[in-house]
Simulated assay, not measured.
Amino acid sequence: MSNAVFPGRYTAVVDGETVTVFLIGMRANRWWRIGRVLRVARRMPPMLSHLSTHPDAGLLGFQQWLGRTTILVSYWRSPEHLQRFAADRDAPHLQPWRDFQKNFSGSGDVGVWHETYQVPARDSETVYSDMPLFGLAAATAHAPVGPGTSTARQRLGR
């Protein structure tokens, strides 16, 4: 993704009636157990690589932030796409999840979390001022704010 800034105000344009927002992350509860933390953390890049090269899996886009508590915000075509990926024996998620449950769950060393939201497009509102492509606009479509979309109320279609 380019870091080129788009001067002015923009909004996201969602193609479809809904977008699925999936938040996932981990927390280094015992940061001094860095080896265990890294063993969990290193499992995410292969998943993202797989999803980036298999658009039929349904991932539209993502951004992530790293720290003691990490967060990855991702946008999906549907909850069914997300669930299909999570359960796919040939995709790089199911085995790492099983490994986490067997080797880390209950130890207190590393926490993992996720939240899933299915958002009707008409109930979402975005604005990006003087920003590079980001968030929902980077995952879907990016359009200048103009007549009929200049206020949050208008973008929500109220």
Rank of each mutant, 00 (worst) to 15 (best):
S150C: 06
R84I: 03
G135D: 00
V19L: 05
M26I: 08
S150D: 15
E125L: 05
P46T: 04
V110G: 06
N29I: 11
R122P: 04
E125F: 04
R30P: 00
P79F: 01
Q95R: 15
M47Q: 10
P45G: 07
L59V: 08
S150Y: 05
D15S: 02
A86Y: 04
A141Q: 13
G16V: 00
L59C: 08
D90S: 15
R158V: 12
G108R: 08
V40F: 08
G146P: 04
S2I: 02
V119Y: 06
Y128V: 05
W113F: 15
A137M: 01
P79T: 14
M131I: 05
A139S: 03
R68Q: 09
R68S: 01
R42Q: 13
I34D: 12
A86W: 01
H54Y: 05
W97K: 12
W113M: 09
F62V: 04
V110P: 04
R153T: 13
I34W: 15
G106W: 10
T126K: 10
L133W: 08
L133F: 07
R43C: 04
G157P: 10
G8E: 03
T18L: 03
V127N: 07
M26Q: 13
V40I: 12
R30Y: 05
A152Q: 09
L51F: 00
V145N: 00
L51M: 11
A87D: 06
P45F: 05
R122H: 12
R122I: 08
R27M: 10
N103V: 06
R27K: 14
Y75S: 00
A41T: 07
A4K: 11
V119M: 13
Y117C: 01
R84Y: 01
A87W: 00
G111D: 14
G35A: 14
M26L: 13
L60Q: 02
L59S: 10
L66V: 08
M1A: 14
L156P: 00
Q83S: 12
R27T: 15
H54N: 13
A152F: 13
P92W: 04
E115A: 15
L38A: 11
F6D: 11
T20A: 09
G108A: 07
W32G: 01
A12M: 00
L82P: 11
A138P: 02
E80A: 14
N3K: 13
G135F: 02
F104M: 12
I34Y: 11
P120C: 05
V19Q: 02
S107C: 06
P147G: 13
K102T: 13
A86H: 02
V73E: 06
A141S: 14
E115H: 09
P92Y: 05
M47Y: 02
R89Q: 14
A28K: 09
V73R: 07
F104E: 15
Q63M: 03
N3T: 14
S49A: 06
F22N: 10
V112A: 05
S105I: 11
R122L: 07
P55W: 01
I71D: 00
L66G: 13
Q118E: 15
